[in-house]
Design a binder for these strands. Structure first.
Lengths: 125, 125
DNA sequence: TTAACTGTATTATATAACTAATACACTTTT
DNA sequence: AAAAGTGTATTAGTTATATAATACAGTTAA
């Protein structure tokens, strides 16, 4: 079951967005596999100290995106085929990297300097 | 005068935050220098198609952070010494890079793969 | 000096994000 | 079968974000 063990709340974006991001990244890494059960909405709300409705919003959106499947009464399950996984992987890698590169460019950081900085900070991240 | 020429609205974070980020990054790159006049709140609101109060919120926070100075009736001015500039540069580089590296790690991307991806995408960013 | 522009402040409204409390029907477990 | 857990829904309230319409006093420029 997906336990959200290493999930940490940040405060830059809405909580339900952070939950969606966490699940998507887990799917990309392989830590979350198709067929796995999600932790229940109530349990996750207690675990994160967040309102159940906020979790419901995240799960509902995940279902609308075709990433999880829910049937009333039972736990929700992750359900993604290889094509979906590759689609998620591609879009996340692209968007995250682009926004970092644009930040560096806007700050006038040279390519080599940016790469060197990333290389040096890798282990502490 | 700081004209916000290349400023583009994205929709992931609040507009007033994006404005603050834009000014800070400009200071780091040197595109925005201490002593320069800011575009007026009203003019910027027209330029971005955004409510004047939203601009006022951004400018007010920039003043609270000790980045601009305002006197009633005259245009606001950027006012940052070298120490402040270095502080901004350090925190922005650190935070932006850390969040990208964490994203890569959460997706199970190896260090070499991440660096290679960034290198390849540099020009299109 | 006047007119235009500027920063600042106020009041009102709308939507999004989050919390709170509760209810109902379905599934799983005991 | 009964209890516990589950997805789903509803209603209400708070805070943050953004818009809208004014107003006033200080500064700048004609």
């Amino acid at each position: 079951m997906i336990s959200f063990e290493d999930f940490i709340l940040e405060d830059d974006s809405p909580i339900y967005m952070q939950i969606i991001r966490y699940v998507k990244r887990g799917i990309v890494s392989g830590a979350i596999q198709s067929g796995e059960e999600m932790i229940s909405r109530r349990a996750l709300s207690v675990l994160l100290g967040v309102n159940p409705n906020t979790i419901q919003k995240a799960y509902h959106l995940l279902e609308e995106e075709g990433i999880i499947r829910s049937r009333s009464g039972a736990k929700s399950c992750v359900e993604v085929d290889e094509a979906k996984k590759e689609e998620i992987r591609h879009s996340l890698l692209q968007l995250d990297t682009l926004s970092w590169l644009r930040a560096m460019k806007q700050m006038g950081v040279e390519r080599e300097e940016a790469l060197k900085l990333a290389e040096e900070m890798w282990q502490e991240a």
